[in-house]
Amino acid sequence: MQPETTNRKLMWWGVNAIVLLYAFVPVLWIVSLSLKDDATLNDGNYIPTSPSNDSYTAIFNNPDFLRALMNSIGICIIATLIAIAFGTMAAYAIARLDFPGKRTIVAMALLVSMFPQIALVTPLFKIETAIGLFDTWPGLIIPYIAFALPLAIYTLSAFFREIPWDLEKAAKMDGATPYQAFRRVITPLAMPGIFTTAILVFISCWNDFLFALSLTSTSNARTVPAAMSYFTGATTFEKPTGPIAAAAVVITIPIVIFVLVFQRRIVAGLTSGAVKG
């Protein structure tokens, strides 16, 4: 019995190693590129032979990048907070309250989540230009909220549905109005779910490229992914590879930290909304 379990463990460690390689090889490659110096950048080695922090120095001295980083952080945090606030409210109503038009709203959220964003680029471009939102923070925040809402609503309503009905009934019996039941009993209990959803929403905002590319024109509101794509064409850098890699690493760090710290919750959040139906 003993050697058999050992063998099975070894086998599983082997399988795990493949998964780890799968996940990390492309990530470590970009880290490696960001650490290469000019001389070794083009040597094609996976591992840098003479690591340097030149690329990082370069991007952190580049006002455009710093501005883009600030944009990314600010826009994503604000969009996440608002999407979570509205999403929590809507998800609670959909999961728990009886009101007319509920099915329509669920269908609408589903529709938005399936929406090809490209279909909105032009109209949003035109509308935002007309009302002066083009190339501003709100100009990105608003679409981000709209596209984060379906995700937030689905994930959160799955969490809300797991809270026992009896708690709301008890709150009502204890003299709470529906709003008080929501605010003082249900929301505190849904906090873990709300937090998880916030992480998912943040990741989805952080990942956006298309809107950032088409609804901005200057560094005023351009986020890092879009700014990175402009590094290539820019002439300020002789060889943009290093800085691009460094910028890529910088915006990957917060995400990797989220994943490391909140693995369990992210898994729970991603799987709760979608499958249980």
Partner: peptide, 12 residues
């Protein structure tokens, strides 16, 4: 006032 089978105590 009502007492529930599940007790429905507020966990938080």
């Amino acid at each position: 006032a009502m007492v529930f089978q599940s007790y429905a105590l507020y966990p938080h």
